[in-house]
Write a protein that binds this DNA or RNA. Structure first.
Lengths: 390, 390
DNA sequence: TTGTAAGCGTTATCAT
DNA sequence: ATGATAACGCTTACAA
């Protein structure tokens, strides 16, 4: 319409009079257009501090302070402002707040791109604990999965630099974990599940895998097994070394020689790889009569391999897992496993991250938890109810 | 250290001379402190557009356009700017961007406060699909759990008005779902798992519970059962009515009379409530010989109740669940269940939400999926491998 | 093709 | 106790 107007004037010829008119029209238009656009495009019903200020008759500054509980505001003023905010259904725009304060009440969590991994029940149980503990602290979780093609480190960097998170929860610490270095460089506090092995000042919680596997091996030795297979994960993880140490120490204590043949490494800690590894172990000249697997999922693969070989799990070949997934109570037979307190770990990691963000130096920065061995039929072979040992 | 200084002066006694010294020290301290704090607390190494502009010699505007792929920028300029950005490890502050554009590449997802619910495997399997599909679209998920004491609707409103999300994924649609009304009022597109029952213009995906339960009941009738118990959930959910309709239609088709005694409602769809409901059913004068449960978890409680009553699941009492949790393959006996394509649902919901945010009207706004019945030992009682029927 | 300037909704600084 | 003003880092008219 405006263009038509111009066109019309152009056709009629321009006098300085009409030109001034155009300018004034254009001026009005320029002023009213944004308002119109705003009405049309923006979420119409989201009140801002300005709205509350107008409604209550105070300045934006005062409103901000009143709603944030500063003590330099008259109580009567505060209640008026509160009423206005309530009436308008005001709730703060966190983008603006986070931009201004450079703080964010969210923790980042990145899940591996590979969907299989994400479906690992362990991830989910962990995440559930993390999310609910975060809620207790009034934090939310920003869940991100890096695109399959992208660099892992970039994914972490983008999230960290996006300004939307105040800290980060990391899983599966690796020996020389590039993520940790990067995040501390960016001044993003992080809480790590697992140890990197060197003291990089990062907060962590870990489970004593050495003690756990030691207990598992001891349990199997006590049952009379002397050929115990050990299915390990990739060496890049610090815990793999720990686990192997626990295995070795238990055998040594029982004066059982350590046979390299019985120790095998899987590339991915999946059911599939557990199955394959177990097949190889069972095909040995003198196969093991018991197995310790790096993960419950790997152990489930192992159980299937044992059964497919015509052997009975628990009777012919004892199987022990590691993780303590709730799933393991329902397998047939139920799986003996070294249980990590998944929920406790998730909760404590969040608490650590939050404490660090708040600058609370007194909060413990790391903790080593002792796992507990849950004995079930997959190792004992009997039908009695499962019991919990240390 | 500063405190120590004060302490020292206090001990030594105060002259006006030393007092003035303190003041001046304090003054200097007060002035330099913020700068120091800033250096310490703010992320020192986070480059902004301004930094890239300075480094590359262009204006902030041009840099912005170059990096965002606008076509009104010289290609040579763009590559210079890209180089500068790379060199500085630039990555955008999304708070600022979202504040300005009023758009956010995140989807909100709120998990119920009750931790038990969150631990429901179904939630987790769903969430995993949602997160990974979101990643495909370059979206992230903002996970929030509303505090136990807070109002549910407030939790949704705060998240929606925080400006951090562009859309929302909702689970467990209820008949008159207040969340949907609120979100559409705020102009936040949402994608719903389940139907509200009335056409409120909200995108949804649902599973045909009527067809599912019909198939389950048919399966049990074919096995010779004529007294089939039905354990339902709270009536506030639309799907409960659907399920009951499927149950009724299957019985009617087989000319089996419908007995109200055999239909029972649990308040919470948990293992515990399933156990209790099943006990009550088994205590009837003429107990059912088969059960259809509203959830796999409820079915697992039912199986335990059957076993505790000294009966054999699958032989004496057939049990069928609904959800198709991967867990159900491992129960003893393995559970017959009406499987929802959890992953597909999660993925499609995300795709729907993203399409709506992008303003793509052509994208389908709702879809009804047909579940499939997975037959296992809990209904057949035999040891043959489980098979999938329609 | 590039730059200038305004503004998104907050909070922080500094007057009053 | 309250308010004016200036940021925070980004996008987007509009001007050049």
């Amino acid at each position: 319409m405006f263009l038509l107007l111009i066109l019309k004037f152009l056709i009629c010829g321009l006098t300085s009079e009409t030109f001034r008119t155009i300018l004034s029209v254009s001026e009005t238009f320029r002023k009213t257009l944004p308002a119109i656009q705003r009405k049309l495009t923006s979420h119409p019903m989201t009140a801002t501090l300005k709205d509350v200020a107008r409604q209550s008759g105070y300045s934006v500054t005062t409103v901000s302070r009143a709603l944030n509980g500063h003590d330099d505001v008259n109580e009567e003023t505060r209640s008026r402002i509160r009423a206005a905010a309530e009436a308008l259904d005001y709730s703060p725009n966190l983008n603006a707040r986070q931009l201004q304060t450079r703080r964010a009440q969210s923790l980042g969590f990145i899940i591996p791109a590979e969907a299989q991994r994400l479906k690992e029940p362990f991830f989910m149980e962990f995440l559930s604990a993390v999310a609910s503990e975060a809620a207790q602290h009034d934090y939310s979780i920003l869940l991100s999965a890096h695109a399959p093609d992208a660099q892992e480190e970039d994914a972490y960097r983008h999230l960290a630099q996006s300004g939307r998170i105040g800290g980060m929860i990391l899983m599966r610490a690796r020996r020389h974990d590039p993520r940790v270095a990067m995040l501390t460089g960016l001044n993003i506090p992080c809480a790590l599940f697992g140890r990197t092995g060197r003291d990089d000042g990062c907060a962590w919680i870990d489970v004593d895998g050495q003690a756990g596997v030691h207990a598992a091996a001891q349990h199997l030795l006590a049952l009379g097994h002397s050929r115990i297979g050990h299915i390990l994960g990739p060496d890049q993880y610090h815990f793999v070394g720990e686990r192997q140490a626990g295995y070795a120490s238990a055998l040594a204590a029982a004066r059982v020689p350590l046979e390299p043949d019985l120790i095998i490494t899987v590339e991915h800690m999946t059911e599939r790889d557990g199955y394959a590894a177990t097949r190889r172990l069972l095909e040995l000249g003198r196969p093991p009569s018991a197995l310790i697997a790096v993960t419950d999922l790997v152990a489930m693969g192992a159980m299937r391999a044992v059964q497919d070989a015509g052997l009975r799990v628990g009777k012919d070949v004892a199987v022990v897992g590691f993780d303590g997934l709730s799933l393991t109570a329902y397998t047939s037979p139920p799986l003996t496993t070294v249980a990590q307190p998944t929920e406790e770990i998730g909760r404590k990691l969040v608490a650590m991250a939050v404490a660090q963000i708040a600058g609370d130096e007194s909060f413990p920065k790391n903790e080593l938890l002792i796992p507990r061995l849950i004995v079930r039929e997959s190792s004992t072979g009997d039908q009695s109810k499962g019991q919990v040992l240390l």
